[in-house]
Amino acid sequence: MLAYVVRRLLLLIPMAIGMVVVTFGLLLLIPGDPAAVLLGQDATPEAITNLRNTLGLNDPWFIRLWDYFAALLQGDMGRSIFQNQPVATIIAGRLGATIELAVVALILATLIGLTLGVLAAIRQGSWIDTVTMLFAQIGVSMPVYWLGLLLMLLFAVQLGWLPAIGRGVPLHEALFAAVTGRPQVLWDSLTHMALPALALAANSAAIISRLVRASMLEVLREDFVRTAYAKGLRKGRVVVRHALRNALLPVLSVIGLRFGALLGGAVITESIFAWPGLGQLTIAAISQRDLPLIQGIVLTFAIVYALVNLVVDLLYAAVDPRIRLG
């Protein structure tokens, strides 16, 4: 197990190199000049050339790529062209908010997806099944920006129950505050979190519920479920302990993949709800052609995604004893 984890962690290195090269190539292809954006519309060509020289943008691409790798090996992700701060510092300041949003959305999506999927499967053909599948269809079809706006309109503007934008105290600090006798801090944090997390989770919840339903329907027909009933076990126990645990196996791998989609979705959701995370930063960095920052963000997303999928693979082996990691 430990050897497997170490090997997977080592595999992060070639993956990161590949990510940097691909991102670098894509950034070379997209039009736009950060020096021109930085200096504004009235900049003279000389000023732009001078700034490009200062920023090293006139160097050949392979020199720039080599320099980037050399710096990266020393833990330096470069400096943001626009914010004039180390990229690592900027990302570190924003990463927590995005991870928090994505993790809460993932938990929400898993809870909703599992509950609806299981209910639909054990009540196949009933109104619960129909409503669940209708929800799943809507959830899969509705883009996150549209759902986000609708939720904001209903819960923030019309009903006034929840704040429309912004982030409260970071969740881990809010949890600590609640433990130390200030539950209102946690409440504030959760109310800020509710709308963006729900908007982000809806699509994944819909996909997970459909998958859980299909997987449960298959498992409920398995012989070992019949054996569980033959032992005299109650239906609830058979469903949760025998059927669901087996049905979870294909769902787990999808949950890992959905985390990538949630990180991608966070880019849009954060912009809608003014959530101060990496997603909002990504939009700004792309529109400003802040190349080092874009590269840093992409690399961070890739590493987080790979780590989450490593955890999912470990969970997979924990749930299914037939899987041996090695």
Binding site: E222, D223, A230, D320
Partner: peptide, 12 residues
Amino acid sequence: FQEPLTALNPVL
């Protein structure tokens, strides 16, 4: 049951 491989729960 006939086929114990499928009649026993594989994850327990």
